[in-house]
């Protein structure tokens, strides 16, 4: 493609965008709306993924020890846990350690546990790392049998549940994305069709004087891609803005997990958005010119 021909395509495409002003606004708005909803699903998926990772990285057992056990008894329990096959390492967390780490989790709300030092309600425990995540259940059963272990907890349930939720969200999200995609394509295709219809005489003449199909098609493709891209840029700007506020708000309230920052979300979804926007535009215009090329 020659440079001046490419310039011609872009110039003509932009002329079309300006010519159908009302329809241009309508289709950009609908692409933006569709991509906003699409982006919502993307953000949910990204966040649930990240939370699942956070939980998975904490994939360790916690064996709580009887509060009345003294250091020597606790050490003996520790020896017994270590002896179980599949245990990689154990770390002792004293009552004081437990309180401190809880304080840390609370962050600037740590005043909530002030004064508890003398009557510490936190249990002492062993944090047990296993060699393989699949052995969690087996190891936890073994540990439960040891005298002095009051309770064993591990994050497996949470992880399983989260993975299940992610799967459902992914399926629903994919379905919604597909529908929105089709709707956007139809809307853009209708907008372009108006332009093509207005220029059918011109297209007809172009065919007679030997223009190739692609020569006729390109300006309309440019128009469609511009509509799609503008729509997706708007969508991501709005989404980033709202999400920035929302995630700050949630992160301040939520203690256990943190939501991804707006910057990370936008960075991760930007390429999807731009690709989706231009694909919607290109397909939409491709559909609408097809019929007019048969001369």
């Amino acid at each position: 493609m020659k440079l001046n021909t490419a310039a011609y395509y872009i110039r003509e495409g932009l002329t079309n965008v300006k010519r159908n002003r009302a329809m241009t606004v309508a289709s950009i708005t609908s692409v933006t709306a569709a991509l906003l909803i699409l982006g919502l699903f993307l953000i949910i998926i990204l966040n649930v993924d990240s939370i699942a990772n956070q939980v998975e990285s904490q994939l360790e057992l916690k064996a709580f020890i009887n509060d009345n056990y003294d250091a020597t008894k606790v050490a003996k329990v520790g020896e017994e846990i270590k002896a179980i096959s599949g245990v990689k390492s154990i770390t002792f967390e004293s009552k004081k350690d437990a309180l401190n780490s809880f304080k840390k989790q609370l962050g600037d709300k740590s005043y909530l546990v002030n004064g508890l030092e003398n009557d510490n309600p936190m249990p002492q425990s062993f944090i047990v790392k296993v060699t393989d995540a699949n052995m969690m259940k087996q190891v936890s059963e073994e540990i439960k049998k040891i005298d002095g272990v009051t309770q064993v907890s591990y994050g497996q349930d949470v992880v399983d549940k989260l993975l299940g939720i992610i799967k459902i969200i992914r399926i629903v999200g994919l379905f919604v994305i597909l529908i929105l995609f089709i709707i956007s394509v139809v809307i853009i295709s209708n907008t372009i069709k108006l332009g093509v219809f207005a220029r059918r005489r011109e297209i007809n003449i172009m065919k007679y004087i030997g223009a190739t199909d692609w020569f006729i098609r390109w300006p309309f493709l440019v128009e469609g891609i511009v509509l799609g891209l503008v729509g997706s840029v708007l969508a991501i700007a709005i989404l980033g803005f709202i999400y920035g506020y929302a995630s700050d708000l949630v992160n301040n309230k939520l203690i256990i997990f943190t939501l991804l920052s707006a910057g990370v979300v936008i960075k991760q979804s930007l390429v999807y958005f731009l690709a989706m926007g231009s694909l919607i535009g290109a397909i939409g215009s491709g559909i609408s010119i097809k019929r007019f090329l048969n001369v």
């Binding site: 007809n204 004087i209 030997g210 190739t212």
Partner: peptide
Amino acid sequence: KRKEVPYLRRNIGVVFQDFKLL
């Protein structure tokens, strides 16, 4: 082939009764 038609038409100039100017 459909693709080759434009090149045929470049070799045949056409004039219509209704001029077909833009």
